[in-house]
């Protein structure tokens, strides 16, 4: 877990996440891992008991996980949302906007660079899952 970047203060879940299929068969689990083809909406009835959702990016160019993340946040999920796998520094900002608050990249990232990319853009044009007011809201007060 040395390369885990967490942007939340609570205690991290200390056990492995299970697959979506296996989670649905044993709904006492509280950590689940979403693969690109999984339907994030299958988890919606169980969000209250989940503390950790890992969303896997086997290759950074497969963007399904961005939709999965937003769907969970839109449904009110407040637990940890962790991007794992081929997570590169230049994907962190859009991931953050889609509601991810933890990153576990295959290859370690420079913490200084992480802070820099997350602070790069002064605002955003569209609402997403990070609660940031979009530019149109800033314009019109």
């Amino acid at each position: 877990m040395a390369d885990l970047i967490r942007l939340r203060d609570d205690e991290a879940v200390d056990h492995p996440a299970v697959t979506v299929d296996s989670f649905l068969e044993q709904p006492d689990a509280n950590a689940v891992r979403i693969e690109p083809g999984d339907d994030a909406r299958a988890l919606l009835p169980h969000l209250a008991q989940i503390a950790l959702v890992e969303i896997n990016f086997p290759v950074f160019g497969d963007g399904r996980g961005y939709s999965a993340a937003r769907i969970l946040r839109e449904a009110g999920y407040v637990g940890e949302l962790r991007a794992v796998g081929d997570v590169l520094i230049d994907q962190l900002a859009p991931m953050r906007r889609c509601g991810f608050d933890a990153f576990e990249p295959d290859r370690p990232l420079d913490p200084v660079a992480v802070d820099a990319v997350l602070a790069r853009f002064p605002a955003a044009y569209q609402p997403a899952a990070d609660g940031a007011a979009p530019i149109w809201a800033l314009r019109h007060g």
């Binding site: 950074f60 160019g61 497969d62 963007g63 961005y66 939709s67 937003r70 994907q91 900002a93 859009p94 991931m95 953050r96 906007r97 889609c98 853009f121 955003a124 044009y125 569209q126 997403a128 530019i135 149109w136």
Partner: peptide, 14 residues
């Protein structure tokens, strides 16, 4: 243009 610029969910479409 504004909505689609840096859209975080749609930056890695198929």
């Amino acid at each position: 243009r504004q909505w689609s610029s840096f859209h975080p969910e749609f930056s890695y479409l198929p």
